[in-house]
């Protein structure tokens, strides 16, 4: 049951977003959450950062710089993706072309959301992060090669840096399978569990009075 594009290797330029604790409200402001679809959220990505209050592009935001056009790797500060559980943050990154987020730590819910959408959540040691950041700042055109198979990041001329990623999610991404398919294969066990554990509430026991 293949629902994700398998991920093995990728080479791309890197967009650095080194602020710490970048929350999902910044990644996708709440006013974009009224959407009922998963696509098209790329325009919402960092919407209030890319453009200043006057509507002009914000020079502090690296996302729209010519040098980063088409980049597929985001190098993000510690605890990126904290806050709201909105999966829209992962959808927006994917829609904008990203396939990898590298950080020293990604917030729990965001990490899961990313991996479930084929966005590789790669966590590296602080020293490796600093080396990558320093290099990308010095040379924004530098390319980074990502191997999920080897759990490795490698700058064009540098040594490989290893990264951590959840082992199960890694297998799912390598094969392009998703979790729902995996859970559906466990329906017998789920039914057995239910047979031994009666439901704790019945949400249908009161009628709607609207």
């Amino acid at each position: 049951m293949s629902r994700l594009e398998p991920f093995t290797e990728l080479v791309s330029r890197v967009v650095p977003v080194p602020s710490e604790n970048v929350d999902t409200d910044r990644i996708v402001p709440a006013r974009f959450l009224t959407t009922t679809g998963r696509r098209g959220l790329g325009r919402a990505l960092f919407a209030d950062w890319r453009v200043g209050p006057d509507g002009a592009p914000n020079p502090d935001c690296p996302l729209d710089l010519e040098i980063h056009r088409g980049a597929r790797i985001l190098l993000a500060g510690h605890n990126f993706g904290c806050g709201s559980s909105r999966e829209h943050a992962a959808w927006a990154l994917v829609d904008a072309g990203f396939r990898v987020v590298v950080s020293t730590r990604l917030a729990d819910i965001f990490r899961g959301n990313a991996l479930r959408n084929g966005l590789l959540a790669a966590e590296v040691e602080r020293a490796a992060y600093e080396r990558l950041l320093e290099r990308v700042r010095r040379d924004p055109a530098v390319e980074l090669a990502v191997s999920l198979e080897r759990r490795e990041l490698r700058l064009a001329d540098g040594d490989p840096e290893s990264f951590e990623v959840d082992g199960f999610a890694r297998q799912c991404m390598l094969k392009g399978v998703d979790q729902l398919g995996y859970l559906l294969e466990q329906l017998d066990e789920i039914a057995a569990w239910e047979a031994a554990h009666p439901p704790r509430v019945d949400t249908r026991s009161l009628p709607s009075t609207a």
Binding site: S85, R86, E87, A90, I109, G112, N113, R116, N117, D166, F168, D178, Q179, L180, Y182, L183, L184, Q186, L187, I190, E194
Partner: peptide, 20 residues
């Protein structure tokens, strides 16, 4: 605990979720 939308689908369909 809070879950993303893909997990909402997982729970709707199977009443379970995958959790470390």
């Amino acid at each position: 605990f809070g879950i993303g939308t893909t997990e909402v689908a997982n729970v709707l369909a199977t009443q379970t979720t995958l959790y470390r």
